[in-house]
Amino acid sequence: MRWKDRPELKPNDRARLTGTVAGHANSGGHIQIMISGELFLAHRLIWKLVTGNEPDDEIDHKNSIGSDNRWDNLRQATSAQSTMNSRRRSNNKSGYKGVYWNKKSRKWETSIRMGGKCYYLGGFDDPKDAHEAYVEAAKRLHGEFARVA
Rank of each mutant, 00 (worst) to 15 (best):
W3R: 09
D5T: 09
E8H: 13
P11K: 02
N12Q: 12
D13N: 05
L17W: 15
L17G: 02
T18G: 12
V21L: 05
V21W: 01
V21F: 03
G23I: 07
H24L: 04
N26P: 11
Q32A: 02
I33N: 01
M34E: 11
L39D: 05
H43W: 13
R44H: 15
K48Q: 15
K48V: 05
L49Y: 07
V50I: 15
T51D: 12
N63K: 07
G66E: 08
S67G: 00
N69I: 02
D72E: 12
N73L: 06
L74M: 01
R75S: 06
A77K: 06
Q81A: 08
T83C: 13
M84W: 14
M84K: 02
S86W: 02
R89N: 14
N92F: 11
N92T: 05
G95E: 02
G98K: 12
V99M: 13
W101E: 08
R106K: 15
R106I: 01
K107I: 04
E109K: 08
E109M: 14
I112F: 14
R113T: 03
G115M: 01
Y119Q: 05
Y120K: 11
Y120I: 01
L121G: 07
G122D: 09
F124I: 00
D125A: 13
D125M: 07
K128Q: 05
D129L: 11
A130E: 05
A130W: 10
H131N: 06
H131S: 10
E132V: 04
Y134W: 10
V135Q: 15
A137Q: 10
A138M: 08
K139H: 15
K139W: 12
L141K: 06
